[in-house]
């Protein structure tokens, strides 16, 4: 379980995250929604160790993980993906996946020089694992392509695949569906549900596509202006006055209400 307590992250005078508190239950697929500029990605950046918080705490399973470096969080099973997919462009898709698991026996120069057998066995194990992940994500045919050459949607799948190379506990997905076509989005959605059910991954998903959120997520948290506005099931959050206001503005909200009353 991740608990975020009264988290602040300011950029100069701008309060990107302004006292956000929330909980992500173990085993859930928690959706994080909110209008653009609500502070969702900044929250991810702080929780995942890319930015230090201005103040506040992040606790994972009872342990304070505030301000830890990304590679330390990785070792604890906390992973994230990026809004704009990142990849090692000069390596193949398979190599991209094989990069992930840290601290293998090939890590030490001594082993690399003098225990070639052990390193080779490890490489083989990694390669099999990577192939299995690609199979799971239905992109086996891309294994030997350079990662810079695959499509945007496929890169998103690769991002998801990266989290499958290790036994992640909790994965933060930042707009995993942005710029992805419907079919591929369904593939991604299925993969998320299966990982959640079969391997017990906890997910926290930022997404603007409400159908996608409705299909996968429970509960849903809505942020606006750096604060948490509402939390609950999709329906509850969708019908929350403050949420509607945050998305549409007060004027438009009244108009929508009027129309609803007349129609």
């Amino acid at each position: 379980m991740i608990v975020v307590e009264n988290l602040h992250r300011h950029f100069g005078g701008f309060r990107a995250v302004d006292g956000a508190s929330l909980k992500i239950e173990t085993g859930s697929i928690t959706g994080l929604i909110g209008p653009n500029g609500a502070g969702k990605t900044t929250l991810f950046n702080v929780v995942a160790g890319r930015l230090p918080p201005t103040s506040g705490r992040v606790v994972m399973d009872g342990e304070d993980i505030t301000g830890m470096a990304p590679h330390e969080l990785f070792a604890k099973g906390l992973l994230r993906t990026f809004q704009i997919a990142h990849e090692f462009g000069s390596m193949t898709v398979r190599e991209n996946l094989m990069m992930v698991p840290a601290a293998q026996s090939g890590e030490s120069l001594w082993n690399a020089c003098f225990r070639r057998g052990a390193v080779a066995a490890e490489e083989k194990r990694l390669r099999d694992k990577a192939d299995e992940v690609l199979e799971f994500l239905t992109i086996s045919h891309l294994a030997d392509q350079r990662a810079s050459n695959i499509s945007g949607g496929q890169k998103k799948l690769l991002e998801l695949g990266r989290t499958m190379m290790v036994d992640a506990k909790i994965v933060f997905l930042d707009e995993v569906g942005a710029g992805v076509n419907r079919t591929l989005l369904n593939t991604i959605g299925d993969a998320i549900v299966r990982l959640n059910k079969e391997r017990g991954y906890t997910f926290c998903v930022i997404e603007h596509d409400m159908d996608f959120i409705a299909r996968l997520c429970n509960p849903v948290i809505c942020m606006a202006e750096g604060k948490v506005l509402a939390q609950g099931t999709v329906e509850e959050v969708k019908n929350d006055e403050r949420v509607i206001e945050a998305y549409l503005g007060t004027g438009l909200k009244n108009k929508v209400k009027e129309e609803a009353a007349h129609g």
């Binding site: 990304p70 070792a75 990026f82 990142h86 390596m91 990069m99 090939g106 890590e107 120069l109 990266r162």
Partner: peptide
């Protein structure tokens, strides 16, 4: 070597390398 690959990965994309542990 793993360390050499880490260096290449780090040079390629620092953010992602950090996320890869």
């Amino acid at each position: 070597t793993r360390t050499g690959k880490s260096m290449r990965a780090f040079s390629d994309n620092e953010d992602l390398a950090l996320l890869s542990g």
